[in-house]
Design a protein around this nucleic acid. Structure first.
Length: 172
DNA sequence: GCCAACGTTGGC
DNA sequence: GCCAACGTTGGC
């Protein structure tokens, strides 16, 4: 199996990276949610759906990544507070990501809830990641990678915290 | 704004 | 099941 196909196929991961376009949902939007909790709805990709439904567990760490901007970067930390459950927005004809094939019995799409934990003192940009001996291997750097939720290794998670100068919020 | 890479759709 | 066409993502 290719490295490319390996992205997203690791059911053992306890750490994840989630992308968000800040024009749509930014780190400050996230921080300002009640209790910092946000349902991660609207994912309509089967590989990401499988992760949301099967692999992502309560307490897992999340690197929050700003995409589709001039300086894409990891900007914050979050954790999973609710495991995969049906994405009801797929059932709502008025919702952005309505899917007419989805039903109560066969929801097709799933989501998790994530909770804001911290903002990095400074964003870790793609350039920063590419320069780093551990982080250069992250899936998010791979050309053409469009997976909006992807696994991160423990080493990568720790390297991000070290770079950011933060203590591990999940270790307390 | 450009365009490469990718996932999905649908004709055959 | 193949694959061309299409829409979307997302870095640059």
């Amino acid at each position: 199996m290719s490295i490319k196909k390996d992205i997203g196929d690791n059911p053992e991961s306890n750490y994840w990276l989630m992308k968000s376009e800040p024009n749509c949902f930014s780190l400050s939007d996230f921080k300002n949610r009640p209790e910092g909790i946000e349902p991660w709805d609207g994912v309509r990709n089967y590989q990401a759906r499988n992760l949301l439904r099967d692999s992502i567990k309560c307490g897992d760490g999340v690197l929050f990544y700003h995409s589709n901007i001039s300086q894409p970067a990891i900007v914050g930390l979050a954790r999973v507070v609710r495991e995969g459950y049906p994405d009801h927005t797929a059932l709502d004809p008025g919702a952005d990501h309505f899917d007419p094939r989805a039903t109560e019995a066969k929801p097709i799409w799933y989501m998790v809830d994530v909770q804001y934990l911290a903002s990095l003192p400074a964003p870790i940009t793609r350039h920063d990641l590419a320069q780093h001996p551990v982080l250069a291997a992250m899936g998010v750097l791979k050309k053409g990678n469009r997976l909006s939720v992807q696994p991160v290794t423990r080493e990568q998670w720790q390297a991000v915290l070290l770079l950011a100068g933060l203590d591990d919020p999940l270790a307390i």
